[in-house]
Design a protein around this nucleic acid. Structure first.
Length: 474
RNA sequence: GGCCGAGUAGCAAAGUGGUAAUGCAUCGGAUUGCAAAUCCGAUAUGCGGCGGUUCGAUUCCGCCCUCGGCCUCCA
């Protein structure tokens, strides 16, 4: 089985053949740091983090870059209205972003370039585009001249005529062509800016990714990812800039785009204000549950975010953690029934264009098997084998690692407390459990049940097992 | 208007040219003092609609309907 990925460029699944198997390179568009990340921002992070984990399993060296956009008019506007400095905003937001993404189990990328540290490279690339006739300076701006690149529109599948016909923006007078887009724009003295051959100014939106990827990866690399909304114009423009700045050399081999997160069937976006921040969600559910929710839907399909979905994702993880907790290290109960999933099943699912729902189904089958190794519901198929519970648990954990879940102990998982901590403390709960135990010993079941119901009303669920009573928060 | 994507059980969500994974919910049963958890079993004659290709289509093709997205900052 070979890695198959859907390429937006060809609109089909293709076998992934790296440019250089000894160094696979992936670039994903990162956040503009002016506000907390919302669940829609989190989706590409989790999706491409999962791909990163798969790639690392398959190739000896993978370089993953995700930029931080810290020059942007939205940041400037935020600084003005909040009366804080741009540095304060970008640093604070970047830190929050790192915390939030870590909570979602996302590994840190190998590179995290910042626009503010790549301005000279951007200026150099723009100068090159001007020199080669693909761009021109006008009224302090530098514009990319779209007609100068014949292939423009290939990624998004729209012709230049379509674009002009559908244009809803006013055409700036300094544009030679209605489709031209800005590479560099002038800054007023109050606005942040850098000296350039065209005067003091700042980069346009698209040039940053072209310059940063070139700096890290050279003119060509393997995978470029992002949300579907970036296909046009952002990625289309990146291609134009990079290809023209590199004498027609291919920019990216595989373009990958995740679908949108919607809320109650409606688009979620910052401009509509109907979004959940990761930060808020983290108060309501463990990060792993948020992560699993994002992986329960195939990455290219739209994902409708609901509270119920979050609850369900948590419930599925509950079961997996229960499976882990059911196996003591010394437990050597064995099964002679073949594993319900073949070797590397989860990996193979993920290698099929990141089929996370299928991978999750396999995780369930594996968890079932861990809980009940001698079950006859797991239809034998393939060569017979004998597994101990310990081996099955190990397999479950190995597969979970690919999905970025089951990273904590079952105990920690079940004692997770929502922030704001409305429920009783762990000590209170333990005391109540002891009181209930005494009541049960005395056969005072009415009192025992009252205690249990009381805890349940406070969101704590008790489970009487052979090894005593355990609890979790519902 | 142009371009793109989606419509599968109560909900969520995979998948396949040969008769529908998985999770939740629901209904039986085992277990339990009762629960929870766990286990056993049941639950879509059906995959938006209408045609076509085919021995056979949910799966391919065409048309239609509905919904969403992009074309402007946005993951």
């Amino acid at each position: 089985m070979k890695l198959q990925l859907h390429n937006t460029l060809t609109k089909r699944k293709e076998e992934f053949v790296p440019l250089d198997p000894s160094n696979v390179r992936m670039y994903v568009c990162g956040p503009t740091v002016y506000d907390f990340a919302h669940i829609g921002n989190a989706r590409p992070v989790v999706v491409f983090d999962t791909l990163y984990r798969v790639l690392k399993r398959l190739y000896p060296r993978v370089e993953y870059a995700r930029n931080i956009t810290d020059i942007d008019d939205k940041i400037i506007a935020r600084a003005l209205e909040s009366k804080r400095t741009i540095d304060e905003i970008t640093q604070e937001t970047t830190r929050a972003y790192h915390e939030d993404m870590a909570a979602l189990g996302a590994l840190r990328p190998d590179h995290e370039p910042r626009c503010t540290q790549t301005v000279p490279e951007m200026v150099a690339m723009i100068a090159k585009l001007v020199a080669s006739g693909h761009a021109y300076a006008a009224e302090g701006h530098v514009m990319f001249n779209v007609p100068a690149y014949a292939e423009y529109g290939r990624l998004s599948g729209r012709s230049r005529d379509d674009q002009i016909a559908g244009a809803r923006v006013e055409v700036a007078p300094y544009k030679k062509d209605a489709a031209d887009f800005v590479l560099w724009k002038p800054s007023t003295p109050e606005q942040p800016g850098w000296e350039s051959p065209w005067g003091r100014g700042r980069p346009g939106w698209h040039i940053e990714c072209s310059a940063m990827s070139e700096k890290l990866f050279g003119p060509t690399f393997d995978i470029h990812g992002g949300g579907q909304d970036l296909i046009f114009p952002h990625h289309e423009n990146e291609i134009a800039q990079s290809v023209c700045a590199h004498d027609g050399v291919q920019f990216v081999k595989y373009w990958m785009h995740n679908g949108f997160v919607i809320v109650n069937g409606e688009k979620m976006s910052k401009s509509l204000g109907n979004f959940y921040t990761v930060r808020d969600l983290r108060d309501r559910a463990p990060g792993e549950a948020i992560r699993l929710l994002l992986l329960k839907t195939h990455y290219r399909a739209p994902l409708d975010f609901t509270d119920d979905g979050l609850k369900q994702a948590k419930g599925e993880l509950d079961r997996w953690y229960r499976a882990l907790a059911s196996v003591q290290d010394a437990d050597e109960e064995i099964s002679d029934i073949p594993l319900p999933v073949e070797q590397g099943g989860v990996l193979e699912d993920l290698m099929d264009d990141l089929n996370t729902p299928m991978a999750i189904a396999r995780m369930h089958a594996l968890a079932d098997f861990v809980l009940n190794p001698t079950s006859h519901s797991h239809m034998p198929s393939g060569a017979p084998a004998i597994y101990t519970k310990g081996q099955l648990k190990h397999r479950l954990l190995l597969n979970a690692r690919l999905l970025g879940v089951l990273t904590q102990t079952p105990d920690a998982w079940f004692k997770w407390t929502p922030s704001g901590n409305e429920g009783p403390s762990a000590a209170d709960i333990e005391a109540a459990i002891q009181a209930r135990l005494d009541a049960r010993k005395a056969k005072n079941f009415a009192e025992a049940d009252r205690i249990r119901d009381d805890l349940k009303a406070k969101g704590v669920i008790l489970e009487d097992g052979p090894k005593g009573t355990t609890w979790k928060r519902g």
